[in-house]
Design a binder for these strands. Structure first.
Length: 477
RNA sequence: CGGGAUGUAGCUCAGCUUGGUAGAGCGCUUGCUUUGGGAGCAAGAAGUCGCAGGUUCAAAUCCUGUCAUCCCGACCA
């Protein structure tokens, strides 16, 4: 395996190289699409299981809806269609027949699911409906990059229907918090929570909330969104119920989603010049055991296999690398590239001393604490605590970066400079006007990432009008 | 969609200016020696030079067209 470009020199090249060299993905023979290799899929499965567990805990069930949406249905919610029209892929033929009506490949599933909800929901007793779907969707993106923006991507989309606006709002807040928790506590990627501005929000939503992470190049990454759809989709798709007082009411619906883009955020946030550094909770393999053969290896392999069995029994995601063809040094580098949090080296030298050498991926080579000798009998019991330390350490490093690259200002010149230079998250009081946001974007390339209330100062830093929000401005992926 | 670049072995690329038998490193296969941060030696397998036309005795190389990919922008909840 060849070396990769350094992360600081060229983040973009480094990022691509890591994705391919760590065998997360391969380039597909289709424009803008990604092949997820087993190791990449392993990462996705970790994210899936962490999210899915939380969805179940908050009362949701999984279901599956069709990939294709008839054009006549898609066009019912005007804002929604308008927002997605430029990116929709259309199916026009089936076999040798031209289809009587074009079918859209779903860019998101509000429409199909809305149609079904209209059928399923009759009474206030049917509410709330709390459904999640694991799916692929397609958006014809002009420019693609692994995980961060691909034509086809994997995600989950929750779709719920409620009797009242307040219930819907609570649902949206609850799921946003689930996303924050998964981003920060599982992926170790710190984020800012807030509401999207009018021009940044989901097409067809009344309110969109997001979590936003900051990448090493100072660009923000929208990592998940949660939408209050009001009664817009209910009216367009006729999602109605008879209430307790016998009046007919439209439902209040929500949708929320996180995609494999989160994995891209994780990769960029934690990776270093040796490759990936995967937070233990997300690692498909938490521990890899590398035996170091020399001379008589009978006892060595026996000990390595015993250790492997012991890890397995303790419920760890563990691999034993017994490949005979590669040198230990090669294996060290390869597992570093793949970001496995803990490596256990065991050779005759260790065996004679009755120890194994534990190596932490979050530390640099030869950094204090990177390697430690642990008595063989204590190895497995020590691992959980070290994994936890690595998890915490990666989050702390990322959090420090976010904090150091978040700038608060009320000075317009400084604001413009910070935005233009891609300094990071620029936190300013803001008026909330779309014209103001458009002007900032025109001048600096940055837009609001998300907002929170109230404003901490009277005047909008960008235009001087009365401020309504505190806004994070940044350029974005 | 605008600007730039690139398509030659699994990967990274040289060869093209000045047309003349298809190259290197890494990887892969076999064997021996090795193995604590990317091992050594030896032998071997592997490419219709992105695709289509044209010029020529002869095209990876020159010309035209076309497709694809990457980078930077615009666009993108």
């Amino acid at each position: 395996m060849e070396r990769i470009p350094t992360k600081n020199d060229d983040l973009s090249e480094w990022y691509n190289a890591v994705c391919y060299r760590a065998e997360l993905v391969s380039q597909a023979p289709v424009r803008g699409c990604l092949v997820l290799r087993p190791y990449g899929y392993g990462l996705w499965e970790r994210l899936q299981s962490e999210l899915d567990r939380r969805f179940k805990e908050t009362g949701h069930e999984n279901a599956y809806f069709p990939l294709l949406i008839p054009e006549s249905l898609l066009t019912k919610e005007a804002e929604h269609v308008e927002g997605f029209a430029p990116e929709v892929l259309w199916v026009t033929e089936g076999g040798t027949e031209t289809l009587p009506e074009r079918l859209a490949i779903r860019p998101t599933s509000e429409v199909v699911i809305g149609v079904m909800y209209a059928e399923w929901i009759q009474s206030y007793r049917d509410l709330p409906v709390l459904i999640n779907q694991w799916a692929n969707v397609m958006r014809w993106e002009k420019r693609t990059r692994p995980f961060l923006r691909t034509a086809e991507f994997l995600w989950q989309e929750g779709h719920t229907a409620h009797a009242t606006e307040q219930e819907a709002a609570e649902e949206v807040a609850r799921m946003l918090e689930v996303y924050r928790e998964v981003a920060e506590d599982v992926c170790a990627v710190p984020v800012y929570k807030g509401e999207k501005s009018v021009s940044e929000r989901f097409a067809g939503a009344n309110h969109t909330f997001s979590i936003e992470a900051l990448m090493p190049d100072g660009k923000a990454l929208q990592s998940a969104t949660s939408h209050e759809l009001g009664q817009n989709f209910a009216r367009a798709y006729d999602i109605k119920y008879l209430s307790e007082d016998q009046s007919e009411q439209y439902c209040w619906t929500t949708s929320w989603g996180m995609s494999w883009r989160m994995l891209g955020g994780l990769i960029m946030t934690h990776g270093d010049d040796r490759g990936l550094r995967i937070p233990p909770k997300m690692a498909p393999t938490e521990v890899v055991i590398v035996p170091i053969p020399r001379g008589d290896t009978t006892a060595l392999y026996e000990a390595a296999r015993a250790l492997y069995a012991e890890c397995k029994a303790a419920g760890l995601r563990v691999k034993l690398d017994e490949r005979p063809g590669q040198s230990p040094g090669y294996k060290f580098n390869e597992w570093d590239m793949r970001g496995v949090p803990i490596r256990i080296e065991i050779g005759n030298r260790d065996l004679e001393a009755g120890v194994a050498t534990l190596v932490r991926r979050d530390k640099a080579v030869k950094e204090d604490g990177q390697k430690q000798a642990v008595p063989l009998g204590e190895v497995v019991s020590r691992i959980p605590e070290i994994l936890e330390q690595i998890q915490q350490n990666l989050f702390a490093q990322a959090k420090a970066f976010l904090t150091e690259h978040t700038f608060s200002t009320t000075d317009r010149d400084e604001f413009v400079r910070l935005c233009t230079e891609r300094a990071g998250m620029v936190d300013v009081p803001w008026c909330g006007r779309p014209e103001c946001e458009a002007a900032v974007k025109e001048a600096t390339g940055a837009s609001t990432r998300n907002l929170r209330e109230p404003a901490l100062y009277d005047r909008c830093t960008a235009c001087g009008e009365p401020a309504r929000y505190q806004a994070y401005f940044a350029q974005s992926y």
